[in-house]
């Protein structure tokens, strides 16, 4: 019979072996996540919402196969979407991105005026110096928790 001192490490090893494959060979590195400061807009939220925000981050695919960012969740907003800003006809336009491709060995930088993670209907003020938590869901690497510093 195993002593209790041995049982715990044995369970830990079993768990690590049995964990979903994607976490064992996750090859996405998430760097420098930050959110733009924003205030919740109250008073007209029923018709106009509580205001929106944006999160920027660099995604690096260090692996040998393609991956894609599919979705993002956060408790700082009631909905989170991946968007791209682009310029057309003298206007800044936005379009939703259903999957953000990450080819092997490349990185994609989400930055102002380009791809961004949009926070729709904020649930709190985004105050500089604080941080919000997000979960990025990749097709292959699975879910990766991310902390975004607010600037």
């Amino acid at each position: 019979m195993l002593s209790s001192g041995l049982r715990v490490p044995a369970i830990a090893i079993l768990l690590s072996i049995c964990a979903p494959a994607h976490s064992a060979d996750a090859t996405i590195r998430v760097e420098g996540a930050w959110a733009r400061r924003a205030v919740m807009l109250k008073g007209s939220e029923a018709t106009a919402g509580t205001g929106n925000g944006a999160v920027y981050v660099a995604l690096v695919n260090t692996g040998r196969k393609a991956d894609a960012l599919l979705a993002v969740t956060s408790d700082a907003a009631t909905a989170v979407e991946i968007h791209e800003t682009y310029q057309e006809g003298g206007m800044s336009k936005m379009r939703p991105v259903s999957r953000l491709e990450l080819r092997p060995g490349t990185s994609v930088e989400l930055k102002p005026g380009g791809h961004h993670i949009m926070l729709l209907n904020l649930t709190r003020d985004l105050k500089p110096g604080e941080a919000i938590q997000l979960t990025l869901d990749f097709e292959d690497a699975g879910k990766i928790p991310v902390t975004a510093q607010i600037r």
Binding site: G49, N52, T78, G90, M91, S92, K93, R95, P96, L120
Partner: peptide
Amino acid sequence: VISRENVPGSASAYWVHHS
């Protein structure tokens, strides 16, 4: 110049593209 657009697949009611 502006253009108001409904965006399928977004939780936002509409966007306003603008200069």
